[in-house]
């Protein structure tokens, strides 16, 4: 194990960097996707409800690994052959970010929907009765209250997404799990290699959840 850390430590830390990069990018996009589709699902517009529901159900109904293959292999092929852009490529980071953002975004949409619905309807009605528009009521009254109930679920989802980055090793993205495979192949020490990788995930996720708990506590205290 010491040998692995000495010899492959830098490589593994760089891989962790790639994991965090992929995770961070995906979380940013997923938050936007989640907010948009979550709002679509709570509104009264039937067409938007339908689009939102289809998106959430479709993405949640497909395993992430299949989604990743579809975007990494399927989409470029379709664009090259169907639209004639023969030089079109999607790199593993791009495809991985798209797949993970879509996946995490669908779960975030559900968190946003549940959070907004947890706010009493009277809050919006009071805002509307004062002359505020629906969107002003959402932005100034409902969402600020919804966020508080959403935070534990969001943190949970962020941790899941961080772990899900490992699935993107299948499209060759050099994140931690993928590099772990290389280390195992080079050293023929699977037990030690995977123990090191596992502990690295554990450390990062533990730090993340401790920080998140701190943020959660602060939000609940200050009001």
């Amino acid at each position: 194990m010491v040998m692995i850390i000495q010899k492959y430590g830098t490589m593994l830390i760089q891989a962790m960097g790639q994991t965090l990069l992929l995770c961070l990018l995906s979380l940013v996009f997923a938050s936007v996707i989640g907010l948009i589709f979550g709002l679509m699902n709570v509104g009264r517009n039937r067409a938007l409800n339908f689009i939102g529901t289809v998106y959430v159900d479709a993405v949640r109904g497909v395993p992430l690994i299949v989604l990743a293959y579809f975007i990494y292999f399927g989409i470029p092929t379709a664009i090259q052959q169907g639209l004639g852009f023969t030089s079109f490529r999607l790199g593993p980071l791009q495809a991985g970010t798209i797949a993970l953002s879509m996946n995490c975004g669908a779960y975030m949409a559900e968190i946003v929907r549940a959070g907004i619905q947890s706010v009493d309807r009277g809050q919006m009605e009071a805002g509307r009765s004062l002359g505020l528009s629906y969107s002003a009521g959402m932005a100034l009254i409902v969402i600020p209250q919804a966020i508080r109930t959403m935070i534990p679920s969001i943190i949970n989802q962020f941790i899941i997404t961080l772990k899900d980055t490992s699935i993107l090793s299948v499209i060759g993205f050099p994140e931690l799990t993928n590099v772990g495979k290389t280390v195992m192949g080079n050293t023929f020490k699977p037990l030690q290699a995977w123990a090191v990788v596992g502990i690295m995930y554990l450390i990062v996720i533990t730090i993340l959840s401790k920080v998140s708990k701190q943020i959660e506590r602060r939000i609940n205290r200050g009001r």
Partner: peptide, 27 residues
Amino acid sequence: VRKNIGMVFQHFNLFNHLNVLKNMTLA
């Protein structure tokens, strides 16, 4: 039109995340 019609609800519906002053000045 609603700006000219005040409404008071059975369950008050004060904005729970804002203090009294902000509740009143928000709109």
